[in-house]
Write a protein that binds this DNA or RNA. Sequence first.
DNA 1: TATTGTTATACTCTATAACTATA
DNA 2: TATAGTTATAGAGTATAACAATA
Lengths: 171, 171
Amino acid sequence: MVMASPSLEPAQLGAYFALIEVSSLLRHAVEQQLRDAGDLSYVQFQLLARLGDSPTGSHRMTDLADGVVYSRSGLTYQAQMLEQRGLVTRAPSPDDERSITVAITDDGRAVLADVFPGHIALLHESFFDTLTPDDVEHLAGVLTRVRDRMRASPPRSAAPRRRKDAAPRSA
Amino acid sequence: MVMASPSLEPAQLGAYFALIEVSSLLRHAVEQQLRDAGDLSYVQFQLLARLGDSPTGSHRMTDLADGVVYSRSGLTYQAQMLEQRGLVTRAPSPDDERSITVAITDDGRAVLADVFPGHIALLHESFFDTLTPDDVEHLAGVLTRVRDRMRASPPRSAAPRRRKDAAPRSA
DNA sequence: TATTGTTATACTCTATAACTATA
DNA sequence: TATAGTTATAGAGTATAACAATA
């Protein structure tokens, strides 16, 4: 269990609330833009973007699940949606017959291209235009550090399946 | 159609991705903690916290909806959930018979008290412990500015009717 | 007529558990 | 046995539109 309540300092509280609110507003706005521009959910966009970023244009299901989605079945569902629309293909991996390699198609890249400009414009409007380059750099540094930390130590009870990582933090 | 993407600078991209990832991981972790500790969804927690913060312990439905960014029907649904558990009460507002005033109950405050320590502990573990006080302050400042900006200029979604909004002026 | 809130409904998404197949 | 992925299923949450009541 948790020990006593450590409480938060005002600046921490402010940072937390602002983070939650900003990400919530941003997410909402972005989801709408993605839906309008390419009929994509946010997760689907993330998957496509990740595939598009890859040198090979492909990833194994597991890699995608680790990066984006939280359960494997959830990823299967989203991959099926994308496959039905012809935005990705799925094929057994050559080296490991258990794995499925998901690859973005030309249509997938086209949708990505349709969606990107508005996506980036939205980010500028609602986000970057209010920040100095210095702010952005600092923000990137700080959040990257937090992300790495969070990735490194999963929160107490993350067992979407079988986990073999050593005891997660515990007190 | 816009031609090439307006593009983002590397630091901007890093900041954006990190923000998305951090908020996603954080949200996930927090949701699990809230579920475990008080059987609350994140939205329900936000509503209770907002009510608990209020001097009167109450808010009108509209105020809550504005604060948490959501459809009214969604808020009605959540308020019903909370009311069924006895964590809030709903009664017509005295001054305006159309309005409903939602008030947190003692049970509601108790649940909030159950949940807070773990909530704050989680924030420390996954977030604040990796940041210097200076980081936190800067983060709070930056994100608050972004939030105010986003609140001030709703993202083109003000008109739910009409057609979908096409290319934003990205230049 | 405009606003406040509810209801009915349909849909998307996510997670759990059971299952198959390969390493 | 452990890993990769799918399927079946069930539940939570959300949005839209139609509706009632008050201002």
